[in-house]
Nucleic acid binder design. Sequence first.
DNA 1: ATGTCGGATCATATCCGA
Length: 258
Amino acid sequence: MRVATWNINGMRARLDYLLIWLGDRRPDLVALQELKLEDERFPHAELEAAGYHAVSHGQKAWNGVAVLAREPLTVEQSGLPGQEELGARLITAAAGDLRLTSLYCPNGKHTGHEDYPRKLAWFDSLADHLEATAAAGTAAVVAGDFNICPTPLDSWNEKALTGSIFHTGEERQRFRRLLDLGLTDAWRSLHPDRQAFSWWDYRAGGFHRDQGLRIDFLLASPSVADRLRGAEIDRDYRKKKEGLIASDHAPVWIDLTE
DNA sequence: ATGTCGGATCATATCCGA
């Protein structure tokens, strides 16, 4: 079984590319972020034709999250309680015996910006929510674009960037609290010493210089972590393909035993 | 090089956010 996450940076702009990737990688469950469209405009018909059910929590122009699955989906949570004013950034859905949460965490802009303390508070609410809704033994994956670089190894230039946005102790403490809830950073657990990135800035030739960050994660509950057999960052899908422009994020996926 | 994207708008050029 394959579970993936991908910040697609615009569903309308990325649909054709997304369909290519779904056909190539055949994931069973997918968490998508940055849909940038309202739920009424979600392309259910195109995804159903490709073999996927979908549930979305979107809004006009910005943010927006979805879960795709080959099996029928049940929505368990739409929106992070108490943090709705920061945008459509969380959806949890169950498919079969697995619960998948898709997250688009706030960016924060920079540490002097008013959005930065809001980002920290959002993560506090997220941890509270996950703690309150965790069910012992439930197979769950919390996946998405976390907009935090959890360790120096996850940054292309920790030396210059330490203390700046994505690289602060306060953000890393928030990420650590998620792991302390019993969740495992699946890709990192299989590749403890590897440096690889999941996002590269469109600007400044970031991708070609490999100036990236690892900020997209699949966090596995204990029963899912026990089933983990593989984890990859799909760097090839950050490249232009068949004339189509890529997202600034690469897909990340994990393979689980049945 | 703040060099690129996606989306919105008092739209065909300019802004905002990332």
